[in-house]
Structure formats: C-alpha cells, structure tokens
Simulated scan of single mutants.
Amino acid sequence: MAEQKPDGIDQNPITVALQRVYLKDSSFEAPSSPGIFIGEWGPTVSLNIGSKTSELGDDNYECVLQLTVEAKQGDQTAFLVEIQQAGLFLLRGLAPADLQRALVTFCPQQLYPYAREAVADLTNKGGFPALQLQPMNFEAIAAEAYRRQQAEQATAAGNAAASPEANH
C-alpha cells in the first residue's frame, strides 16, 4: 500500500510513461531480386514476433519488440525484414504482477505501431508494395501464451503421475 501524507497526497504514485522510442536494429533482404519482380505478385507472408525487456535501474526499463517478416513467392524468398523496435519506459509504483503484465503487454503494444511503420517503409523502399501488418492485441496474445503454458504443465504433471517410475 502506498504511504500517504496526512493531507492525503500519495507518496508513491504509479507512473507508466514512454520516455523514448528508437529503432535499435533493422535489416532488409531481397535475395531473389530482380527476377522476383517479374510475374504476378501473390506472396505468402509469415510473421514472427517476440519481445524482451531489460531493467535499467531507477524504475527504467528497455523493451525491444522483435519482428521477422518473410514473404515467399512460391519457393523463392521475395524479401526478409527484421526489425528491433525499442523503447525506454518509466514504470514506477507497480505491484510485481502489474509490472510483469506492463512489460509483456503494455510496452510491446506501444512499440508495435512504430515497428509496423518500419516494415511498411522498408518493403516499399525495397521495390515491393508496402506491407501493412495487421494490428495486434498483446493482452490477448499474453493470455493465450499463459493458457498454453498452464495446459502444458498440467499435461506434464499428468504424464509424470501416470509413469511407472512415479508409482515406485
């Protein structure tokens, strides 16, 4: 519980603030160009996404949102884009569970529009139509990952209880 002065002013206010957004790393490859530009454009696009956080001290955290986008035209790679969109966040006064949730959902959610813009810009500059990634709900993604983790743990616990070695 936050301490309060006698006049009711909170001594430990909660602060959640984005301090800075920056592109930490980016890469664009078009290994099949210029031949890939000939013919009808109808790629299969895959997206891998992840994030990592680092505590920097004084309630400051870096969050890095990592996106890897690959477009294939048949069996040829049309382009590969890798983005590390980063941000500095001030997260003060949060309970540990709320801090973890902010690092996993809130921070990546704030960075994602910048990463989407970087992907669209790089694909367009590479001679391809600007790739517009769909919006994402990081709260739903985190909830699904937690549900899967719980199911895997329950399955593992059930398998351990059913194994012959567990009954000895």
Rank of each mutant, 00 (worst) to 15 (best):
N60K: 15
S54N: 13
T68S: 13
Q84D: 12
D75M: 09
T77A: 11
T105M: 04
G126N: 06
P129H: 00
D59F: 03
A157F: 01
I49C: 10
Q150L: 07
K72H: 10
G87W: 08
P129G: 06
V104E: 15
Q100P: 10
A140K: 15
Q150S: 02
E152C: 00
E70V: 15
S46Y: 02
T44V: 06
Y61T: 07
Q132M: 15
Q109P: 11
A95W: 04
G87M: 01
A86C: 10
I83G: 05
L65S: 04
Y114V: 02
V45E: 09
R147G: 08
K72N: 12
Q73G: 09
L99F: 03
I49Y: 09
K125Q: 13
L131K: 10
N159M: 14
A78L: 01
L65F: 00
V81T: 09
A71M: 05
C107A: 14
A156P: 06
P113M: 01
P113N: 09
D59W: 00
Q134M: 08
K52Y: 13
N60F: 14
N124L: 14
G50M: 06
C107Q: 08
Q100V: 10
Y61V: 05
N60P: 04
L99S: 01
L90F: 01
S46L: 01
I83R: 03
L131V: 07
A102S: 12
F89K: 05
A97C: 06
D58S: 14
L133E: 11
E139T: 09
F79R: 08
G93L: 00
E70G: 11
I83F: 03
L133T: 10
C107H: 09
Q85C: 03
V104G: 15
L133Y: 02
L47A: 05
L90A: 11
S46R: 05
T105S: 09
L91V: 09
T68G: 09
L91R: 06
A154C: 05
T44D: 13
A156I: 04
T44N: 14
D59K: 07
Q73S: 11
T68Y: 08
Y146C: 10
Q84F: 04
